[in-house]
Nucleic acid binder design. Sequence first.
DNA 1: CTAGTATTCAAACGTTCGTTTGAAAGTCGG
DNA 2: CCGACTTTCAAACGAACGTTTGAATACTAG
Lengths: 225, 225
Amino acid sequence: MSLRAVKPPHETRTRILDAAEELFMQHGFEGTSMRLLTARASVNLAAVNYHFGSKDALIEALFRRRLDPMNAARIAGLEKLEVEAAGLPCAPEAIIRAFLRPSLRMIEDAKGGGRNFIRLLGRTYTEPAKPIRVLIGQLYAPAMERYKAAFERALPQMPRDELVWRMHFMFGTLAYTLAATDTVQLIAGCKPEDRHDACLLEDRLTAFLAAGLSAPLAARIRKAA
Amino acid sequence: MSLRAVKPPHETRTRILDAAEELFMQHGFEGTSMRLLTARASVNLAAVNYHFGSKDALIEALFRRRLDPMNAARIAGLEKLEVEAAGLPCAPEAIIRAFLRPSLRMIEDAKGGGRNFIRLLGRTYTEPAKPIRVLIGQLYAPAMERYKAAFERALPQMPRDELVWRMHFMFGTLAYTLAATDTVQLIAGCKPEDRHDACLLEDRLTAFLAAGLSAPLAARIRKAA
DNA sequence: CTAGTATTCAAACGTTCGTTTGAAAGTCGG
DNA sequence: CCGACTTTCAAACGAACGTTTGAATACTAG
């Protein structure tokens, strides 16, 4: 057997993707040049176009690498929940937790770059570039439908309109929380060490979102319905 | 008296700012070139540098034009509330409403460009460029401190850490809701006409946020305190 | 070892970027 | 009408951008 270190089959690709996650997170897509990116990854300038085709294609590959497993984990978590519930509707709080967990777990992965990605993802929900928005929408669609159905079964008395809005709100809270970790600090005062504790954050978020999701309807909306 | 139309004193400045709001909203800061911007505003390419100094200075002026009055309205709304309460702490729901209202009011201002700005603002909370983030933070700071103090008085039993987190969550919900109007549509199903009805949106958001803000503490956090 | 494929590399491509320049045109009090 | 100041304009600046090229190198099956 050879004692020489075996070069992984896609090392260059991986190094590019990792550097891209970090730099896109720090400076945005347009704010990150291919020269800076390839220098950070210690690869040649032409490597991105050789391995991915273009900068846009790199962005797409970057999202697929993380989002596909993450949303698969979301669906798996929901299915586990539904099996355990044995036909009965699940508790809204449990559904929320199942949705949050895969993304919050990534925050703890500082070494592997998962934290970089999750922050990048949080801010990409409001990305102006249309191709990126539709890509994210596509990658989320399967998980989103499943969770929407689960919430509808868990909250049968809630009007569909209202549920869609509240899912929207929940999504926004998560996106902002992910994106803002370590970056924006509009409100001073939280202990820095808490910001990367995924368990604590999951508890806080779940308590907040579960209450919001099940909140009584506003008077004006109750009247209109 | 002259029948000739009098040219407003800062028409060029205003046209540039309006065009910038629209284009920055559509394509982001880096995605909008000065050539496209000045063409849209029907002014010369050099006009931006003449009137503002640089592209970055234009961005700053753009935010100041809208944020200063908006946060002044936020503070005024809170003060009115506190006067009416006559020394007693205000209802959390009322504080939330006072905070939401100035930004939601702008959604209705499609003609004057307020809607463009408010969407741009929503996504700028997660802007990667550091100078912009600190600017936004500075412009928000006075209003933020006031509201934090108001919430602390309204919810004296809540741990400070938890309150800061929940304000963070509330802020994220608002930011995402503002930014995503007409752009992202991760969850299909809401009636398009509802999306610009600021009253309905205020009711929905307030119901959701008030419940989240006052949610019971998560078991693990209650134990730790 | 060799032929053939896959990858890396330095250099250059054409384009677009934000900004600057200096002259032309407009504005306005005296 | 004039002189001083403000504003607009076409043109150009150097720098940085994403991408392409063709030769050099590494790898691997036969």
